[in-house]
Design a binder for these strands. Sequence first.
DNA 1: CTACTATTCAAACGATCGTTTGACTGTGGA
DNA 2: TCCACAGTCAAACGATCGTTTGAATAGTAG
Lengths: 208, 208
Amino acid sequence: MRTVQPNFSTKERILGVAETLFARHGFAGASLRQVTAAAKVNLAAVNYHFGSKESLIEEVFRRRLDELNRHRLAALAAVDSKPDRRLEDVLDAFIRPALEQSMDSAGGAAFVRVLARAYAEHDERLRKFLSDNYGHVLRDFAAAFAQLLPHLDKEELYWRLDIVAGALTYAMADFGMIKRKNDVSEHSHREQAAQHLVRFAAAGLRAE
Amino acid sequence: MRTVQPNFSTKERILGVAETLFARHGFAGASLRQVTAAAKVNLAAVNYHFGSKESLIEEVFRRRLDELNRHRLAALAAVDSKPDRRLEDVLDAFIRPALEQSMDSAGGAAFVRVLARAYAEHDERLRKFLSDNYGHVLRDFAAAFAQLLPHLDKEELYWRLDIVAGALTYAMADFGMIKRKNDVSEHSHREQAAQHLVRFAAAGLRAE
DNA sequence: CTACTATTCAAACGATCGTTTGACTGTGGA
DNA sequence: TCCACAGTCAAACGATCGTTTGAATAGTAG
């Protein structure tokens, strides 16, 4: 695995390395000394460029979440404009950008694990930050789903979307028991995960 | 919240407090000094009774996993003996014990978060430990599901069970965006989560 | 060239980490 | 009564943590 991108700026190298190390060892488990050593920058560079470890963590999130939210909303808008919307299309608009980011060669896979870890950390500060960045996206998708699933009241719908988000988080972070076989590339492994997920979620959302 | 159980032994108090603090701050984030202070025992007690922090973590898992697995297998056996098995019954045997443990008054709720956190930690050592304790249970359930879902081949089935486990983990750990309303008890909140989960998962497993 | 700003660097700060030590306390059996 | 042993305790160990400092080093505008 490539841990350093030599021709990138100090700030970018720190962000990239921090992403993979936070994914692997957690926010408390990955020290700034590990990060700066792997990024081949001085220890003080983190506090110089980001102010604190806490701010570095937020910056790692902001960089990817802005991109993910943009892609998701664009995909949703594309689906919205079509005359015959299918449930699977909206689901795909929600799931595929996350999948694609998790296959991005430059640390995107790591970020999905960081995101899952943030959920697990259960830190109120981080949750508020995520809710501020994610909230309106989830609401837009909920509205799209609501149109396609008129038999579900609002609360029922939110429960089910919560389940979908959970399964997606879990699957994309590669938590599962299913071991990727050696003759299957990581790319096609995730592609399979996405397809199974969309089919499963579509059936679950339509239930009853 | 009650953090200390004064009439319990030192070992039991450490286990109980460690469970809630690991759930709240992670394994690296919760220090032995925090644990021993909250448990009102001496700092050295952890290394005396458990040997190391790592062993304490394993013991926290073992205590609850043994119980959870026993309940799950018992519930599965009860379903197995009935003549007309329904998919929802097997799902319930898988989901309900986890739910009930997460509602257990004495720290069970904390443990479910610890479990979710362990998934996120992605530590190979912990994963092996979990696989050793969980593996055969998952296999038994897979066999039961396989009988009820003959249209799914083995790989497809495992993918879907993985999704179910992910959604369960996520839901039980209370990661979701859905805020529990003030007029709903935590008990009935989790009961609702379980019901939504069973219905959603049943439809997802039956899909196609 | 000079003056100024931005960045990098080695070194050190105090705090906290997991662990170990050795003395002290209490209890039960010989 | 005395011994042995399990348990508890305060204190300290070396290691590592996030952060700060002040000097060294570009890079740039006047």
